[in-house]
Amino acid sequence: MQVTVTVNGKTESHDVEARMLLVYYLREVLGLTGTNVGCDTTSCGACTVLLNGESVKSCTMLAAQADGEEITTIEGMASPDGVLHPIQEAFRQHHGLQCGFCTPGMVMAVASFLKEHPDPTEAEVREGLEGNLCRCTGYHNIVQATLAAARQGALAP
């Protein structure tokens, strides 16, 4: 079936299998491999992207369901000249990543969270990110990075 979707500001149109999940559309059809697959039960959040500015787990929706919508992936966060988005920069400044596999999904989850909670408490950050698992950082520095990004007023793109 034909799917037309705006991804990182660019309109894409492809004929895809009806059963194709959004994450595989992004990874295999568009070649946007920054969005990772870490589980098969919508638990880990490695595949988190923004759908019309709100975080969704792209392993849990069909590409067809994104027809006519706007998607932002991790590849769309930095500016075209390579300057990291303030959330990405906060993760770097606060050592909020190690192996990096959960990181794209985590950054997207933070972007969506901060849009809804521009001035969060630590407890709100922890609750807000509980759908995204990280096995390396123990979350400490991810929370610090999120709070720092909030202080800088880093909203979603």
Partner: peptide
């Protein structure tokens, strides 16, 4: 010192084995 690995990982440009074409 901030990590030199991070920009590639943060921007989604790093390549894990599943990403190789």
């Amino acid at each position: 010192m901030l990590r030199r690995e991070d920009p590639a990982l943060l921007s989604g440009e790093a390549r894990y084995v599943h990403d190789l074409v």
